[in-house]
Design a protein around this nucleic acid. Structure first.
Lengths: 210, 210
DNA sequence: TGCGGAACTTACTCGTAGTAAGTTACTCGG
DNA sequence: CCGAGTAACTTACTACGAGTAAGTTCCGCA
């Protein structure tokens, strides 16, 4: 910064590629979380890591590529957390509640992740749309499975209805997540999960009679 | 385009400001609808209208300003349509169905509007967030009113629960709208509205017993 | 007829995504 | 120990889009 032509300085130890990639990813996750997708420039990330911009392009291809990589990491964690909760539940009714609870708790406990995933990713019709569609598709698959668990076996299943219900639940949980972070005094995860459960549980059964 | 220094050409009749504003707004609505917010440049809009960029800035202040103006116009139409349907219904159960139906039908019949409103606007955590929050807030208010209509008078109302339910429904309908446009063979508005109604109707009553 | 303001333009600046082409540190066979 | 090959990394650009300063042209009206 003080010299015009670069004097050697500390002899810049090179790092392993994988290590650098992680380093970049962590910084990106943090900055995206703080300033959002639009508000983050590749130069910012590069400066933060102490590396030049083209290196990031070499590793991640594009701004979208970098953002997608962040998403992929977070989505794995979130999906696993919710899926674990659902699968650990003793019956269908508990599974529903447990899934909701795990979802809202995770987002409370990882506000940074939340910002990247939901506020930018899940919402964006922009660059990350494909990636977040994948995340969402995975959730919808999970939800659809749970919905089917609630239907008596042997009944003919209307796949359209299952889809409609799964999409609805997905949309509801996403919007609730966003609302909760914006609300002055958001209800606890338990309260939200409970209310959702109450709202949906009965209706899930009436579907089978259609 | 073929000359370097502009020869007079057709003597450019000037127009009334209001007329120009409408002209610009219509073009913007169309282009935003086709290419999305990010994909649209102010130069595109200017060229399309046959006007220079600074004029648009003079009238709308910024790209966001222009986009917001588009949103405001559409939101009015959509909100009115749904509200009318809800208010015209004979009872609470019908009101719910009628509201859903109006929502999905409107979006089917105005795909252009849809694109601007939902795919970019409703979703965006970006520049138009405040404006779309307003739209959403209006819907949520409407939904909350309907929810309260379902509760027996005289009962203490848990405002948190009403909010949770209203947010859920809002999220569900938005996601369903998006899903429907992306799906190969989306179910009819009637089917979706019916299923949603079935899913929620029972649960809406259990809330009051809490 | 000429003057005041509204409608409109040219010709920029600035910031950011993305790239071409080169340079430096490491490593491994001889 | 040494040089060639390659992976890690940089400087120095281009391209393009948002936004602006400063002017020019047209019109209504005294």
């Amino acid at each position: 910064m003080t010299s015009t032509t670069v004097p050697p300085g500390p002899p810049k130890r090179r790092r392993d590629r994988a290590a650098r990639e992680r380093e970049i990813l962590e910084a990106a996750e943090r900055i995206f979380g703080e300033r959002g997708y639009q508000g983050t420039s590749m130069d910012d990330v590069a400066a933060q890591v102490g590396v030049s911009k083209p290196l990031i392009y070499q590793y991640y291809g594009s701004k979208d590529g970098l953002f997608l990589a962040c998403l992929a990491r977070l989505r794995g964690q979130l999906l696993d957390t919710v899926a674990d909760a659902v699968l650990a539940a003793p019956d269908a009714e508990d599974a529903l509640y447990a899934g909701f609870l795990a979802w809202f708790r995770f987002l409370d406990e990882h506000p940074q992740a939340w910002s990247v995933l939901v506020d930018e990713g899940m919402l964006s019709a922009g660059p990350a749309a494909e990636a977040t569609d994948e995340v969402r598709a995975a959730f919808i698959e999970l939800i659809a499975t749970m919905v089917r668990m609630n239907l008596p076996a042997g009944r003919p299943v209307d796949d359209d209805e299952v889809q409609i219900v799964a999409q609805s639940i997905s949309g509801a949980t996403e919007r609730l997540a966003i609302w909760r972070t914006r609300a002055a005094t958001p209800p606890t995860p338990e309260k939200v999960a409970r209310t959702l459960q109450d709202l949906l549980w009965q209706g899930l059964h009436t579907l089978k009679t259609t």
